[in-house]
C-alpha cells in the first residue's frame, strides 16, 4: 500500500518538475541544449525503420575531372540501444569484388569492424581508429560512411537560415572522439522534416576541408527520408565523390544473424 502511494506521488512530482523545466527551458535554452535537441529530434524521426538495403554507386573525380567508378551493396540493421550494424559489399572494381566490410557502430567508444578478403577467404578484425581514412579511395572518410549517432558529437545551435526557399537550422557539431579527422562540422538541417541538406567539414587545422550536399530526397514508408544522391567536394585537393543510391528497400526481416563475421562471406 505504502509503495503504491509513493509511486503515485513520485509520478505527480516528476510530472510537475517536467512541466516546470519545460516552461523554463523554452525561454532559457542554451545554444548547446538547442543544438542537441535538434539532433535528437532528427534521430527520433528516423527511428523504427528496422532495416534497409540499397545498391550504391560511387563516382570518384579528380581535379582533371577523370572519373573512377565503385559499385557496392549496403545493408543496415537498426539497433535500438546502440549504434546500427551495417555491411558494405563491393562489386566494382572487379579486383575487390566480394570484399565486405562489417561495422558495429557504438553510441560511445570505438566501432567494431571486420573486413572480408575473398581471395584468401579471410575475415580480419581491423582497427576502427582508421575512421579518418578515406573509404575506398574516395573523398568520404570511414567516419562519414558509418552510422551517425547523436552521442558521437557535442552540439551548438548557430542560427536559422533560408536556403533555396527552405527554412533551415544551422548547427555546429564537435566529434567526441579525438581520433576523428575533424574538429567540427556545420550542418544545415531542414526545419520541416529535420533532414540534413549540407555539411561543412573542418579539419584538424580548423580549415574548411570538405562540403557534403544531400540531393534528391525520397520518402519511404511515408516516414523515412533518404537522399538518393550525396555529393562530397574536397576544397583542398579539388577532388570530389558522388554517392548515387539505388532504391532503398526497408523491412527485409534482417536479424543479428545477417550481420556477423560468418555472414560477411555470404552476402555478396
Amino acid at each position: 500500500m505504502i509503495k503504491q502511494v509513493n509511486i503515485k506521488t513520485g509520478a505527480i512530482v516528476a510530472g510537475f518538475l517536467l512541466m516546470v523545466s519545460t516552461l523554463v527551458g523554452a525561454s532559457a535554452e542554451t545554444p548547446e541544449e538547442k543544438g542537441l535537441a535538434i539532433a535528437l529530434e532528427a534521430e527520433r524521426r528516423d527511428q523504427g525503420f528496422s532495416d534497409s538495403r540499397a545498391d550504391l554507386k560511387m563516382v570518384l573525380r579528380n581535379k582533371r575531372g577523370e572519373a573512377a567508378i565503385r559499385t557496392m551493396r549496403s545493408k543496415v540493421l537498426e539497433v535500438s540501444e546502440d549504434g546500427d550494424k551495417s555491411i558494405f559489399v563491393f562489386d566494382d572494381p572487379r579486383d575487390v569484388k566480394g570484399t565486405a566490410l562489417l561495422t558495429f557502430a557504438h553510441k560511445s567508444g570505438e566501432d567494431d569492424q571486420w573486413l572480408y578478403l575473398p581471395a584468401l577467404k579471410r575475415v580480419k578484425r581491423i582497427a576502427s581508429k582508421n575512421k579518418s581514412g578515406p573509404f575506398m579511395g574516395s573523398e568520404f572518410a570511414y567516419e562519414d560512411m558509418s552510422s551517425q549517432e547523436v552521442d558521437k558529437y557535442e552540439y551548438r545551435y548557430l542560427r536559422e537560415e533560408v536556403v533555396d526557399g527552405r527554412a533551415m537550422f544551422v548547427i555546429e557539431q564537435f566529434p567526441v572522439d579525438k581520433k576523428s579527422g575533424y574538429t567540427r562540422q556545420i550542418i544545415w538541417i531542414g526545419k520541416e522534416h529535420y533532414r540534413p541538406f549540407r555539411v561543412d567539414y573542418y579539419d584538424r587545422k580548423h580549415t574548411h576541408l570538405k562540403t557534403l550536399t544531400f540531393l534528391d530526397y525520397k520518402r519511404y514508408l511515408d516516414k523515412y527520408w533518404r537522399a538518393q544522391k550525396m555529393d562530397m567536394e574536397n576544397h583542398q585537393t579539388g577532388k570530389s565523390t558522388t554517392l548515387e543510391w539505388g532504391e532503398f528497400i526497408f523491412r527485409n526481416g534482417y536479424t543479428d544473424r545477417d550481420f556477423n563475421r560468418n555472414s560477411l562471406a555470404k552476402t555478396r
Binding site: 570505438e110 567494431d112 578484425r125 582497427a127 576502427s128 581508429k129 581520433k179
Partner: peptide, 9 residues
C-alpha cells in the same frame, strides 16, 4: 587470438 586495441592489433 587477436586483441584490437585502438591502433594496435
Amino acid at each position: 587470438l587477436q586483441a584490437t586495441k585502438g591502433d594496435w592489433l
